[in-house]
């Protein structure tokens, strides 16, 4: 796994997948049993945490309760014996950058969640690390604060020239940050790419389902044709297996008969359930069950038969073979 300098990289995965452990390995708080970690071309695998040019924003922020905001931020500078007046300037600039002006004399217990997070950010960034690690930085924030803080974090990343590596279990957050992301499971990196790549071309069932649940269709290859429960379908992908799985995003299935009629990949299905979501309508169809997300203009009733167009370009052949 490689992260480009200056990038906003996201490690995404369900809890317990080892993403935080990976972050701790990069920070040097844990040592790997095998493998190596390189930082700017230098092997840092055996360099202890306090000697790595890497700083972390901890999930619970881990602010020093006995130090005020200024002292918290100055901790790293002081530990490295940075000149006092220079340290003072740096801390003040950090307070300003993260709009913490006037809070310097407060203690952590006198701060709100959002302020604590900004102090944790300032405490890490004031050291001008090569890499900033963020361990689920939004998880301790109120949901309505999260979107705002996410934008602020992106702004901050744009302003300073530091590599950010963030861990999150929130797909939306990982997508929003825009840089490359890596999907992890059971300590393994499953897929890496831009949000668009990973979302639209999932590599296997796990990625397809973890990112807002794609429809997974078991299929058998018969020449160019994929025989599925929905009927014979074509895909634009190269298929390696005889028996395996295909994935199609619910919102990429086209409802109704359109100009593509006659080109194949048209199937008929019966509506089991219609869920009105407001901005969209969600249909559960038989056989399958296949999920379709479409414009709220449509309102098919349960029991009705609808026709679907499954664009071959959006039908992804997954790596998983049938058991």
């Amino acid at each position: 796994m490689a992260v480009t300098k200056g990038e906003f990289f996201t490690l995404l995965g369900p809890s317990g997948c080892g993403k935080t452990t990976l972050l701790r390995l990069i920070a040097g708080l844990e040592l790997p049993d095998s493998g190596s970690i390189f930082l700017g071309g230098q092997d840092v695998t055996n360099i202890p945490a306090n000697k790595r040019q890497v700083n972390t924003v901890f999930q619970s922020y881990a602010l020093f309760p006995h130090l005020n905001v200024t002292e918290n931020i100055a901790f790293g500078l002081k530990a490295r014996k940075v000149d006092l007046s220079l340290a003072k300037t740096k801390v003040e600039r950090m307070l300003e950058t993260l709009s913490l002006d006037g809070l310097g004399r407060r203690f952590p217990h006198q701060l709100s969640g959002g302020q604590k997070q900004r102090v944790a950010l300032a405490r890490a960034l004031v050291n001008e690390p090569d890499v900033l690690l963020l361990d689920e930085p939004m998880s301790a924030l109120d949901p309505h604060l999260r979107t705002q803080v996410q934008s602020e974090l992106l702004d901050l990343h744009r302003k300073i020239d530091t590599t950010f590596i963030m861990v999150t279990h929130d797909q939306g957050e990982a997508m929003f940050m825009g840089g490359h992301l890596a999907v992890m499971k059971d300590g393994q990196m499953i897929q890496m790419g831009t949000p668009r790549e990973v979302y639209s071309r999932p590599k296997n069932k796990f990625v397809a389902e973890f990112l807002w649940g794609a429809n997974i269709l078991p299929a058998t290859r018969d020449g160019d044709m994929m025989i599925t429960t929905l009927g014979p379908l074509k895909t634009a992908d190269q298929v390696q297996w005889i028996q395996g799985h295909l994935a199609i995003r619910p919102e990429l299935i086209v409802l109704g008969e359109g100009p593509n009629l006659g080109q194949g990949n048209y199937v008929k299905a019966k509506v089991i359930q219609t869920i009105y979501r407001g901005p969209s309508v969600e249909l559960l169809l038989d056989p399958g069950p296949v999920k379709v997300v479409t414009s709220p203009r449509f309102n098919p009733q349960p029991g009705e038969t609808v026709s679907l167009f499954i664009p071959p370009a959006d039908l992804v052949a997954l790596e998983d073979q049938a058991a």
């Binding site: 040097g28 945490a49 020093f64 901790f75 790293g76 530990a79």
Partner: peptide, 23 residues
């Protein structure tokens, strides 16, 4: 976690004790 934070912020073991554990 504050002990880890201190190590992450370049504190030696002695500094961790003096500036984080002791207070």
């Amino acid at each position: 976690e504050t002990l880890e934070a201190a190590r992450d912020l370049y504190a030696s073991s002695f500094q961790v004790f003096l500036r984080v554990i002791l207070p």
